[in-house]
Design a protein around this nucleic acid. Structure first.
Lengths: 123, 123
DNA sequence: TTTACATAAAACCAAATGGTGTTATATCAT
DNA sequence: ATGATATAACACCATTTGGTTTTATGTAAA
């Protein structure tokens, strides 16, 4: 985990449920480590490690005020996830683009897929 | 990794770069395991493990055709990620909502944050 | 019916992950 | 100065992860 030059992948950073919960907390307002820790059943040391990972992914920033270290949400890197997701949106936005995609690439299975989707809707 | 009832979290499933690349490949067209493997420098066994994780997250489905097992993209669960992301979009869509958020929660730091953002833009 | 092909299943391994407890250092309040 | 508070820095640990190799099984083709 080390200092602050480790460069953690944002996808990896948000993979852990505890870290996602930390982000949600910091979305409400910035908080010192101890306040964050109080929301979890794990040790402060463990929370600090999660914070370091989030900081290495540039999803949070921390600044010291007196003896406290205050962490704040820095959501910028989440745009990378959004961009990644946007590529897959064509597959669920409507069945027409799904059909178009299938016809273009694997035409012979398009009907099978469409039938499956229809059955799921009926259920 | 086991059979098929393990229920893997979609955030965890997409955390691995290899698995994201598998999804991208399957977005083009469905493929048998051997064809997927040929795109990676790792063994077929390793690819199969990634496929099992993706299948446990319901992001791909596999069906046998003769002696081949064909995998197909099943992007539905990605909506969960999209939903999760939508909560954070308010923070980067425009500075006004960012400022609004800060004023509502931690008013005294809003100016500092805005100044930081402006500096980054200048660079 | 051999032979080759494609996948499946299992045993094993090193490194990363998520957690712990202990010890040290800086700051605030008395 | 003293004691309490908040974080930092380590050392350590069990489990998971991402990979390997080996062995077995089913299917296609000669």
């Amino acid at each position: 985990m080390s200092a602050s030059a480790e460069k953690v992948d944002v996808f990896q950073a948000i993979a852990d449920p505890t870290r996602r919960e930390v982000l949600r907390l910091l979305a409400e307002k910035e908080l010192p480590i101890s306040a964050i820790t109080s929301h979890f059943p794990i040790s402060r040391t463990a929370v600090v490690k999660h914070l370091h990972i989030l900081a290495d992914a540039d999803l949070v920033t921390g600044h010291k005020v007196g003896r406290e270290k205050i962490y704040r949400l820095h959501p910028g890197p989440l745009t990378e996830v959004k961009q990644w997701l946007s590529f897959y949106e064509q597959f669920w936005n409507n069945k027409l683009s799904m059909l178009k995609h299938l016809v273009e690439t694997e035409g012979d299975t398009a009907l099978t897929v469409l039938r499956t989707e229809t059955d799921q809707q009926k259920k």
